[in-house]
């Protein structure tokens, strides 16, 4: 974990004070960590362990948090919010690259492939489409969009989302419910047969 230990704590503190540059820097750190881990997991995947998002993010978050000594309160929520956004970008970037490379022929499989595949299969969505839909959604319903992002990509509880967005749990539930309906129509449209 080396140099990053103090780093993350400090960044989190600054994020909490609304420092956008710090948010961006934290984002970069998480992003690097996720990708580095993904690479490291390739070896394990070979011997038969299937890699999934759980393992990946779990490990990344665990490492960063242990290293930074972040435990409690609002710092934690901020951290998970960042984690959620990062996860979105890691996955979408990768899905986009897959799309590009698929046209280009053979390439080596990497662990993120199975993560992306699993999500796309389980949810029957295309991550790149989802990303675009979320960006559109953010235009009209910024808070609703953030709520679903925090839940879907970050796995935050209703309570944590409420804390992060500074609204009540009931509001979070309404936001989420509507976000699902909106995105469902946007992504599945009329052709959803099930």
């Amino acid at each position: 974990m080396n140099e990053s230990a103090g780093d993350v704590t400090e960044l989190l503190a600054r994020v909490e004070q609304g420092d956008d540059a710090a948010r961006e820097a934290l984002f970069e750190r998480v992003y690097d960590e996720l990708r580095r881990l993904a690479g490291g997991m390739l070896a394990r995947e070979r011997v038969g362990h299937t890699l999934d998002g759980t393992a990946l993010v779990h490990e990344a978050a665990g490492r960063l948090l242990r290293a930074s000594g972040v435990h409690m309160g609002s710092q934690r929520t901020h951290f998970f919010a960042t984690m959620a956004q990062t996860m979105r970008r890691v996955l979408v970037d990768h899905a986009r690259r897959r799309r590009r490379l698929r046209r280009g022929g053979d390439r080596q499989r990497v662990p993120l492939d199975s993560v992306v595949e699993r999500i796309e299969q389980e949810q029957r969505i295309d991550l790149v489409d989802l990303d675009e839909a979320l960006s559109e959604f953010r235009e009209v319903g910024p808070r609703e969009c953030q709520a679903i992002e925090l839940q879907f990509f970050g796995g935050l509880s209703i309570q944590d989302i409420g804390e992060q967005l500074d609204v009540s749990a009931a509001t979070v539930k309404r936001d989420l419910r509507f976000a699902r309906l909106w995105l469902h129509r946007r992504l599945r449209g009329a052709d959803d047969e099930e």
Binding site: G62, M87, F152, S157, R177
Partner: peptide, 22 residues
């Protein structure tokens, strides 16, 4: 529809609690 975009089994406070002492 409620199951659509159900939370990914990824990060979460509960999930991390055992290991990261959250």
């Amino acid at each position: 529809t409620d199951q659509f975009l159900a939370p990914l089994p990824l990060t979460s406070a509960g999930h991390l609690s055992a290991e990261a002492e959250l």
